[in-house]
Computed example of a mutant assay.
Amino acid sequence: MNSNTGDVQGGLVQAGRVDQLLLQFGGGARPPRPDMLPLDPAFIGFANRTAELDALDRHLDEADEAGRPLIAVLSGMPGVGKTMTALRWAHRVKDRFPDGVLVGEIGGSDRPRTPAEVLGTFLPQLGLADVPAGEQERVAAFRNLTTSRRMLVVLDDAATSAQVLALLPSSAASAVLVTSRRELPFLGGGVVPLPLAPFEEDAALRLLSAAVSEPDAEPALRKLSAACGRLPMALQIAAAGLRGRSSISSYVDRVVADLLDRLEVDGERLLRAQFESAYRDLPDELRRA
């Protein structure tokens, strides 16, 4: 994004080597347009977040008008819907990025992927068949390949600013959307912070109510919503469990009594895994507390 970023990550490779890498596109042919987006969350029950999506639209418009890149960070606690919100927005605006969309899972601090690993996925998507082995060479190749391209890059679950810095495209016309449990203030003053909070109670109740037909279920649903902390992930899993139940109250009582283990998808306790990961990420003093 700026001339200092390459210095932070260890400098550029020699120009001759970059020329060799770029020649792999062959005869000046246009490189491929990557689209690494998975299924749009809108098709699997994405709800709410209208204000956040609209804010991202506005920030993109402002960045375009100013001729600068957009770097935005969606931050929040586990289960608050950062990844789904990022992917929903990426689908919403992908037509504004004619050179493609790259999506990289960084893996947080629990299962971190190095920039070299992520770039090992990105570079072939950009048409580079012979991916260099070293991280500095990969960073340099990535920046050279994105210099004149308008791309959207989604970086999911970043733990540190350093992980993100190596993965910023060099074009001022590009946009980068990062998700993280932290706000990542060290990315710079031009970064747009967008913290996500749990749903408001009314929104949480609407999500749960859409899964039931029982007319007097609201008291039980309010109890379930509170137990879920109005977190989108927990609410979505709970709503799936509500469908087809003959007794809403008995199901809610069982879930509330053992929330982290009762809320599962295909036997996988996703909510427990999220919070265990967040717990392991805490400093020793906070774990003890």
Results as ranks from 00 to 15, higher is better:
Val8Ala: 08
Ala15Asn: 11
Gln20Arg: 14
Gly27His: 11
Arg33Asp: 04
Arg33Tyr: 01
Ala42Tyr: 08
Phe43Gln: 12
Ala63Thr: 09
Leu70Gln: 05
Ile71Lys: 02
Ala72Arg: 02
Met77Trp: 02
Val80His: 08
Met84Asp: 11
Ala90Gln: 05
Val93Thr: 10
Val93Pro: 01
Pro98Asn: 01
Pro98Gly: 02
Glu105Cys: 05
Asp110Arg: 14
Asp110Met: 08
Thr114Trp: 07
Gly120Lys: 07
Leu123Trp: 10
Gly127Ser: 08
Leu128Ser: 03
Asp130Glu: 12
Val131Glu: 08
Pro132Trp: 08
Pro132Gln: 10
Glu135Gly: 12
Gln136His: 11
Ser148Pro: 00
Met151Ile: 13
Val154Ile: 11
Asp156Pro: 04
Ala166Tyr: 04
Ala173Met: 03
Ser174Phe: 03
Val178Phe: 01
Glu183Phe: 00
Leu194Trp: 09
Asp202Ser: 13
Ser209Asp: 14
Asp216Lys: 07
Leu224Asn: 03
Ala227Val: 05
Gly229Val: 10
Leu231Met: 14
Pro232Thr: 09
Ala234Arg: 01
Ala240Pro: 00
Leu242Arg: 00
Leu242Phe: 00
Val255Phe: 03
Leu260Glu: 15
Asp261Ala: 06
Glu264Arg: 13
Arg269Thr: 14
Arg272Cys: 05
Gln274Glu: 13
Ala278Cys: 00
Ala278Ser: 11
Leu282Pro: 09
Arg287Cys: 12
